[in-house]
Design a protein around this nucleic acid. Sequence first.
DNA 1: ATGACCTGTTTAACAGGA
Length: 279
Amino acid sequence: MPQPHVVAAPAFLSDMQIATWNINGIKARLPVLLEWLKEANPDICCLQEIKSVNEGFPTQILEDAGYNVAVHGQKAFNGVAILSKRPFDEVSYGLPGDDSDEQSRYLEAVVQLDDTIIRVASIYLPNGNPVDSPKYSYKLAWMDRLIAHAKQLLKLEEPLVLAGDYNVIPQSQDAKRPELWVNDALALPQSRARFRSLLNLGLTDALRAVNTDAGIYTFWDYQAGAWKRDNGIRIDHALLSPQAVDRLEECRIDKHVRGWTKPSDHVPLVVTVSEADNA
DNA sequence: ATGACCTGTTTAACAGGA
């Protein structure tokens, strides 16, 4: 059994940047991912839709870029990963609650900081369309499992960041053209109610904690000139436990990355938390 | 404009995404 490679922790960090990004295929996106990691230099980066088996993931290349790598992949579709400059204390694969679920959409890891730990999950919540198919009931059931698991995690009273592609447009202000989404799995009342249930457990939408403006998006479709028209939706979110919110410094969306060559249709969202408690 | 994409893959007048 080969020893897993461990990248040494940085000697000093005044704050932590935790990013999430649906990259829509690691094979097609590796150059853009490496470019953005170099530019933004996040401490932790949650990835979704890697569309790769574990063996096909460019672990060595990302380790050479300074990251420890945890991967939960599958063939062709879905797949999540977490990159971390600091070593992983624990990694758990898959969302609890249904042993028959074979889709790789959830990965959770714990990282040691100077004065505490931080628990991070990379989430690729099911799309759910079309809504008259089993895909929508799978989405709602998956969200119910996420609510149940989040409830357990919150009992730990740790700094917790549940970050990823939630495939939920929380409110009409989170879409450029909300009327196009009223009958869509991303915006239907049952989807939105479950997203609100997560918040009602005591989780905070990090972006909304720092900015309540309309017109903030994380996804622009490849089709119909959506990017050119700024026809976007906000579906990538970081939900924080109270202990993480106490350390929240900033939350930003790296919108400019959507304009790069061969981009993902999603852009990175970055949460900055301090190493010291601000409360 | 009635049009307009991208990815991985069983390379297809495909499936799945959002």
